[in-house]
Every structure is written in structure tokens, then in C-alpha cells.
Design a protein around this nucleic acid. Structure first.
Length: 473
RNA sequence: GCCGCCAUCGUCUAGUGGUAGGACAAGAGGUUUUCAUCCUCUAAACAGGGGUUCAAUUCCCCUUGGCGGUACCA
């Protein structure tokens, strides 16, 4: 029986991209669903684009969302000898050749091809070099690359998501396998490593679909059995272009910072191109592993819809117990707020729980609890067409009632009946609740006044009602 | 330019040879004040043209559109 093994092979050129995370997730889900292994390979063969700290970011990101890798992490930059050996093997077998052409020459050839309506390919002029010429150039320290010889014919392969895919080899360029700096290109390193690591399924983004024939040819040349391929659709921005930094946050850790829960990110990402076939939408990682199937993965690209993510995140936030949520929210309050008792913070968090889309919302939603003086327009205190006299009357009554309630009994339950009876007299609850709510929060949208008053306590509540009265004087 | 992939509400998608269901977002209403939650309802899609067929959103072809590739980047 075939042992399932997948890999996530990011290049360390920056933050772990949200699209990359989805690729990792699909690989992980597929492997775990089939009792297989999931490994991480760092494709750091481009020294120019390498960004320090990226590997750490990738590891932190994966760990945060709960994707565990099996075995040791492979670094391609540490394996250049291996790739070189295989490149040389191909040269010996006449399946690859040295090329000394400069970038200028290459560009010229390409332009010429495009002008004539042909695919932009290298013209193989270095293939004609004699052994002697090659030895001479190498001895001269002329920079060179090693190119793959693409044979005539067609290359066909079966993609797990797209079925049969076929390319005419005349469209395929003689791919550079070894760069002049001695490092391999993706194509060589990728094939060698996937084989050496016994990767059974290559699940990667669609952008690799058109270079898969090169990989197939490489497998054939080496006499290796190719893995199964699955090219998953791309994650797009709302303008349907490839999701990138100019569209806002794309780094996984940025989402963390904004207050998205890892469970929500995973749930959302899984559904960007996959669904269980029924209307269920909230899935834990374990449930995803159980239900995932590569055949149900969508073919077309999916737009990253932040609204839906927000909704899912809200769902998860609402399911959290208060202690856990409070802990997660703490860092979003300003520092000085840590001076307040944790009970105070906990009460606020509980009050705002079903209003949060992201954890970071807590700061803005609850800022009025921490202010000494609220800034708001006095007209905001008026409910509908209420006149000044009426407003003043109501606030005075509230002030009186508040003052009479003992400090240690200043609870929602105690406050509610009193204000309700008063409201009944006036005939419209809003006439009491709205002005009080604004007096306590200074906002046109907030939790209910009773809840706020209870958390604020008697002293502050009375003070805020009084300062509202001051405002309308 | 050349090659490849793709095409159902605005978005994520289900679905079948006999005309489309869910979710997000939007709108309306309810849940004894606002916001949120929750509930109910409404609006919203098979890109176009040819075939095949009694019948096509579904199968085939073309067009169009989108995306990807076309690097000594991955």
C-alpha cells in the first residue's frame, strides 16, 4: 500500500502568506485524512530574495494555527551538492547541457521569438558547442548554467483536481536546472527532493500547473516514478488578481495581530475552494481532517472575502468562554488599563462578546469605560424629537434614583425595575434608555445602559449622568 | 504574442439531461431603547453563440472573459 506523504515547500522570502497557509492546510488535511505524513521543506535556493526571519515566521504561523509537521525540516540551500550531482548525471546522459549565454543574448532571442509569434524559448545555440569549447569556457571561468533538454512530443499527466492535462513539448523551454551561482532552480531541487523524500502527493498552487511537464520529463530522465499532482486554485483579491500586499494584510501573523482566531482562519481557508457537499460551515481542524477530500476541491480561483472571515471569526468568538476570551483580549486594551481589576475587564469582555468580529474591536468598543470625561454632542442625548425640558427632567429623575441605590446594590437587576416603572410613566422606554445610554457611553451605539451602569458602578454612573445634565444646561 | 487552466446570485459555493439550494454581504420586519446577537422574510446567478437530444445550467465545439505560465523567482 502507498504511504501518503505530502509537503509544504515555501520559499523564505517574507511572511507566511495567507494563500500559502491554505496550500499548507490542504496538504496537511490530505495527509492526516489518509494517516500520512506532512513535512516542511524550505526552498531557499534564491539567495537574492531570501529574507531573514521568514523561516521563523513560517514556523510561528503554522504552529499558531495548529498545523504540525512531521520529521525534520529540510533546507534546500544545504543540499546543493546533491542537486549538482543529479544535474551532472543528466549531462552525462545527454539530457542536459551547459549554456554560457548572457542575459542580453537570452532577451534578444526571446524578443525575436515573440515577434514571430512563437513561444519564447531558448534556441539551443549552446547545445552545438563542442566538448573542447565547453572545457575551455569552464576553464576560463565563464559563468554557465545547466539546461534541461526538452524532448519532442507531448507530455500528459493526470491532475487530481483537473483530470487529464496535456502540453505540447514544443511550447516548453529548455529549463535552467543549475544557476551560475551553483544553486539549483526550483524545478531541479523540487523534483530531486520530492523523490528523495518519498513525497506521494504534490499539492501545490495552480501557478505550478504549466511547469509540471518539465517536472514529469525530469522524473522520466531520472527513471523515477512521479508523485500524484493536485493543483489547487489560487486565492484572489476582490479584483480577481493574485492576492498581494497592496490589497491589505496577507501575512498570517498580521491576521493574528488583528484579532482573528486560528480556528476561524483555518475554517475559512478550508472553505476557500472546498466544501463538504452539504450546508455545514463551522468545522474544527479535526472535523476537517475527517471530511476533507481532494476531489471536492474547486477548480476556479476563489476571492478572499474578508466579510465571511469576519463572520466566521465572530462565530468562534461567541463560542469562547469568558475567561479564555478575556485572556485573548487583554493585549488589545491600552497598557494603563491593566491597572483596573481583572473582574472589571472580564465584565467588559462579557458585555461585548457578541459584538466582536475581531478581538481588536474590543479596544474601540469599550473605550468609554476607561475615560474620565466623555466627549459627545449634547444633541445625541435626545431621543427622537425629545425637547430639552423633557430630557433634563428624565436625566434628573435618573440621577435621583441612582443616588438612592446603595453602592453595593448597584446591579442590573436592581436598576432595571426602577427605570422601567419610570419609563412606563413616560410611555416610551427609549425616552429613558437612550439618554441614559448616551450619558454613560457617549456613543450612538453601545451595549445597554443597565449593563454599562452595573460595570461602571454607582459613583461613575452618577457622575456621568450629572455631567450630561451639565451639558444641556 | 504563444501555451495552459477556469467560468452558477456581489462573494464562497450545492446541484441535476426535465430551469437552481445554502452561507456571507444587502434590504425589510420581529426579539418590551441604540448597536450587536438571535429569529422570520425579500431581492440576487447558470457569460454568449452553435450543436447533440423530445429536453441542456448540466454533454461537445466555438467565442468572450478571468486567471496562471512564458526568469540563472519560487
Amino acid at each position: 500500500m502507498l504511504t501518503i506523504k505530502t509537503r509544504f515547500a515555501p520559499s523564505p522570502t517574507g511572511d507566511l502568506h495567507i494563500g500559502g497557509l491554505r496550500t499548507a492546510l490542504y496538504n496537511y488535511l490530505f495527509a492526516k485524512k489518509n494517516n500520512g505524513k506532512f513535512v516542511l521543506r524550505i526552498e531557499d535556493t534564491d539567495r537574492a530574495r531570501f529574507k531573514k526571519g521568514s523561516v521563523e515566521t513560517i514556523l510561528t504561523g503554522l504552529k499558531w494555527v495548529g498545523i504540525k509537521t512531521d520529521g525534520k525540516i529540510i533546507y534546500q540551500s544545504l543540499r546543493t551538492d546533491i542537486y549538482k550531482k543529479y544535474a551532472e548525471q543528466l549531462i552525462v546522459k545527454n539530457k542536459a547541457y551547459y549554456c554560457f549565454c548572457s542575459a542580453e543574448i537570452l532577451n534578444k532571442i526571446r524578443e525575436e521569438q515573440i515577434k514571430n509569434g512563437n513561444p519564447a524559448k531558448y534556441d539551443r545555440r549552446c547545445l552545438k558547442l563542442s566538448k573542447k569549447e565547453i572545457e575551455e569556457k569552464i576553464k576560463n571561468n565563464d559563468p554557465y548554467v545547466v539546461r534541461l533538454i526538452i524532448p519532442d512530443g507531448k507530455t500528459k499527466f493526470k491532475d487530481l483536481i483537473r483530470e487529464e492535462v496535456e502540453f505540447n513539448n514544443r511550447e516548453i523551454d529548455d529549463q535552467v536546472l543549475l544557476k551560475s551561482d551553483g544553486y539549483p532552480t526550483y524545478h531541479l531541487a523540487n523534483v530531486v527532493d520530492d523523490h528523495k523524500m518519498k513525497i506521494s502527493h504534490v499539492i501545490r498552487a495552480e501557478e505550478w500547473l504549466s511547469s509540471t511537464p518539465k517536472h514529469i520529463i525530469l522524473y522520466e530522465y531520472f527513471g523515477w516514478k512521479p508523485p500524484k499532482f493536485a493543483h489547487i486554485p489560487m486565492v484572489l483579491a476582490s479584483d480577481k488578481s493574485k492576492l498581494s500586499k497592496r490589497h491589505g494584510a496577507t501575512g498570517v501573523l498580521e491576521f493574528k495581530k488583528q484579532g482573528y482566531l486560528p480556528e476561524a482562519i483555518i475554517n475559512f481557508l478550508a472553505f476557500l475552494g472546498w466544501n463538504p457537499g452539504d450546508s455545514r460551515e463551522i468545522f474544527s481542524m479535526q472535523e476537517l481532517i475527517k471530511e476533507f477530500s481532494i476531489e471536492k476541491v474547486q477548480k476556479g480561483g476563489a476571492i478572499f472575502n474578508i466579510e465571511k472571515l469576519n463572520w466566521i471569526n465572530g462565530q468562534y468568538i461567541r463560542k469562547l468562554n469568558i475567561d479564555k476570551l478575556t485572556k485573548l483580549c487583554i493585549s488589545y486594551f491600552e497598557k494603563k488599563k491593566s491597572l483596573h481589576s481583572s473582574l472589571f475587564i472580564k465584565q467588559i469582555v462579557a458585555l461585548e462578546q457578541n459584538r466582536l468580529k475581531k478581538l481588536s474591536d474590543i479596544a474601540e468598543f469599550s473605550d468609554f469605560f476607561f475615560k474620565n470625561k466623555l466627549e459627545y454632542d449634547k444633541d445625541l442625548l435626545k431621543w427622537k424629537n425629545m425637547n430639552n425640558e423633557e430630557l433634563k427632567n428624565i436625566l434628573e429623575k435618573i440621577s435621583d434614583i441612582f443616588s438612592e441605590i446603595p453602592e453595593n446594590d448597584f446591579t442590573k437587576e436592581k436598576l432595571e425595575p426602577i427605570l422601567k416603572s419610570e419609563a412606563v410613566k413616560i410611555g416610551d422606554n427609549g425616552k429613558v434608555f437612550w439618554p441614559l445610554r448616551v450619558a454613560l457611553s457617549g456613543k450612538k451605539a453601545s451595549p445597554g445602559p443597565m449593563e454599562i451602569a452595573e460595570i461602571l458602578g454607582k459613583e461613575k454612573s452618577v457622575e456621568r449622568v450629572k455631567s450630561a445634565l451639565e451639558k444641556i444646561k
